[in-house]
Design a protein around this nucleic acid. Sequence first.
DNA 1: CACCTGTGATAGTATTACTATTATATTTGC
DNA 2: GCAAATATAATAGTAATACTATCACAGGTG
Lengths: 222, 222
Amino acid sequence: MNALNISVSAKLYNKNPEETDLGKRILSKSIELMEEMGYEHVTFKKIGLALESTEASVYRYFQNKHQLLAYLINWYWGWLEVKMAQEFMMLNNAEDKLKRAIELLVNPMGEDNRIPHIDEGLLQRIVVAEYPKIYLTKEVDTENEEGYFLGYKRLCDTLGNLALQLNPEYKYPHSLFSSVISAAQSQQFFTEHLPRLSDASAGRGAIVEFLTELTLNSIQKK
Amino acid sequence: MNALNISVSAKLYNKNPEETDLGKRILSKSIELMEEMGYEHVTFKKIGLALESTEASVYRYFQNKHQLLAYLINWYWGWLEVKMAQEFMMLNNAEDKLKRAIELLVNPMGEDNRIPHIDEGLLQRIVVAEYPKIYLTKEVDTENEEGYFLGYKRLCDTLGNLALQLNPEYKYPHSLFSSVISAAQSQQFFTEHLPRLSDASAGRGAIVEFLTELTLNSIQKK
DNA sequence: CACCTGTGATAGTATTACTATTATATTTGC
DNA sequence: GCAAATATAATAGTAATACTATCACAGGTG
């Protein structure tokens, strides 16, 4: 059995899009459109139109665009964690796992064909370009209670625990990894659009090296 | 003479708000409203109303809300750089300057009464809550050419150069400081709203310590 | 066959993000 | 001290957005 199910909090949809054909097509087309024209320019009307369906049908699955974005980004973090867990099985020490985790944060991964309606490569680009928008709102506290940010939090915990294996005294595991995950995304964005804010003209390899050094130097006992 | 003028690229406004009384009142009231209700919920109509002026008058100064936000945030980075430069004069080595810079990134500063129409404390809270929104758009490349991000870039350069004084071999000064500045903001946000993403329940002191360690450990020669 | 679910089609509303026009008050230039 | 230019207020109007609501139909299920 090749199926793979990424679980996303039920508060992140009106009606579970994974359960119907239209739902899956909505996910698929939303990812395409959002990557192509950016969150701000997407509307449910455009999504409906592109699907040869209607605005109202999209609203049946998601309350609004913000919820849709939150769904997609949570799905991505969930998927990434699964992917990391798989790769960690082949490694036997925390340092190697951390290094591999950082690579996975930065590098667009090989195709994952187990979930045909989601193009993880496009989704990764959406995460890079849009992820802070899900929490930088006045509604953050209520949405937090509804589990809008669980994916991000879990990933931070996982990586933070690896850091604690390396150095149980390290005082800032959550801060470190929320910062490193965030930097992994924004360095990709800066490399492409605002190169003066990065030193990664060499590409993703340099981002990985920068983040790996930064992470290990922070954690290691002096 | 106590006056102080923070220069902001002329592409960031239609008509310079610093040059008229209404312009200054627009800045002042926009900061109040944006801090209070958040970027998304602000409209030029509301700003006009709050000023007992009109929507159209606000449009004479700024093309749209996005440009207004970019103006405010650039103003803030410019102001912070001036502030840092002042404090650096009292310090004589790069490490102390870096430490002080990180403190200033995190700590709401004492009142600065030289610019009466701008409340820097409120503005700092806007920067924490909204700053990535100015570049995370599909228009980033054209806006970049127009100087929308100069404030941020200059600050990164300044801090990067300090790092190079400490260690001329350090390979990632821009990446490091765009990440540190960004982390300084997001850690403040997380501490208040998503505490599981930080370890700073102790408050700003912990954020400063976390960032200072991270920065110095990254830069220092091994 | 009756019913329920999911979808499509259509309509309608309030708000937003502007643009345009005109009237008036204030400042400045001569 | 008057004319001209400038700044603002007042108002109107448009297109798009972000929804909400209603109804009809098609397919499958009990």
